[in-house]
Amino acid sequence: MTSRNFRVVIVEDEPHARANLREYVHGVQWLTLVGEAADGAEAVRLVDSLEPDVLFLDISLPESSGLEVIERIRHIPEVVFTTDYAQYAIAAFEIGALDYLLKPFGRQRFQTMLERVRQRLQSKVPAPERAQAAFDKPLRRLFARTRDGIVPIDVRTIQHISASGDYAEVHSDRGQHLLHISLGELASHLDPEIFRQIHRSHIVNLDAVVKLVPYDSRRLLIRLRNGTEIVASRSASENLRSLVR
């Protein structure tokens, strides 16, 4: 048993699922429910104002995803994702979340998760440090919102990424998706041995390059396996030439 109560915020847009979580949390002596939200914007406001120890967070929310909520909050609690889709568990663990609950879940699964929560809350490494360590690792997957939900994108399938205002336009074997993140910020989370920013507006997957062709005396034309051709900047062209010397 813990020596103090830990504060909990629930973010879930489905009323029935939110009610179940509320009931389960109320049944745990060392947890105190301090707030609930049904959308991403309210979730960010609650987490940063209430600073909970534990956040139960639905991955698929109106307006923004649970993954986007994690990117926007300043206070970093222990996070347990709730989701209807097992494949999104990968996202939970890649960004340092503690666990995930696959809906619909029962009291037994909740109790199993609680043991991990209790152990983590009593650990010596603060949640912000663990979250930062997770974000410092190159991403293996990106997650894009569509009209039908959230689509996982294996970074190995990405051909290139282009800047589109404040967004990043990802071109992969699965098609084209728009992510609400700047190109520079996204580049900092990708493996630099595989992904190179060859222009202020373009990142390419080196494994997708089929040919480098001189464009002029200083720049290279990069041809990708999907037929896309991109002209690299002078400095990027020089760096690419160094790879084949």
Rank of each mutant, 00 (worst) to 15 (best):
residue 119 Q to F: 15
residue 128 P to N: 03
residue 110 F to N: 14
residue 61 L to S: 06
residue 107 R to Q: 12
residue 83 T to N: 04
residue 37 A to L: 07
residue 40 G to I: 00
residue 107 R to A: 13
residue 98 L to R: 01
residue 39 D to R: 06
residue 111 Q to T: 11
residue 123 S to I: 08
residue 91 A to L: 03
residue 51 E to K: 15
residue 122 Q to A: 14
residue 114 L to N: 07
residue 123 S to Y: 09
residue 96 G to P: 08
residue 40 G to C: 03
residue 35 G to Y: 14
residue 83 T to L: 02
residue 85 Y to Q: 13
residue 73 I to T: 07
residue 113 M to H: 12
residue 122 Q to L: 15
residue 104 P to G: 14
residue 71 E to F: 00
residue 47 V to I: 14
residue 108 Q to I: 14
residue 120 R to D: 04
residue 130 R to D: 08
residue 102 L to R: 08
residue 77 P to E: 05
residue 56 F to W: 09
residue 82 T to F: 05
residue 56 F to N: 09
residue 125 V to H: 06
residue 96 G to N: 02
residue 83 T to H: 01
residue 99 D to T: 01
residue 45 R to P: 00
residue 75 H to N: 03
residue 77 P to I: 03
residue 121 L to G: 02
residue 117 V to S: 03
residue 91 A to W: 00
residue 107 R to W: 06
residue 47 V to M: 11
residue 100 Y to C: 02
residue 38 A to M: 10
residue 110 F to M: 14
residue 113 M to A: 14
residue 45 R to L: 09
residue 46 L to F: 00
residue 123 S to T: 07
residue 95 I to C: 05
residue 92 A to C: 01
residue 119 Q to S: 15
residue 122 Q to V: 11
residue 89 A to D: 02
residue 124 K to C: 14
residue 63 E to C: 05
residue 44 V to P: 00
residue 43 A to L: 02
residue 124 K to H: 15
residue 54 V to A: 13
residue 107 R to T: 10
residue 121 L to F: 08
residue 53 D to M: 09
residue 70 I to V: 14
residue 110 F to C: 14
residue 82 T to V: 07
residue 35 G to C: 12
residue 42 E to P: 01
residue 110 F to L: 13
residue 74 R to A: 09
residue 75 H to K: 05
residue 132 Q to N: 08
residue 77 P to T: 02
residue 122 Q to N: 13
residue 78 E to M: 08
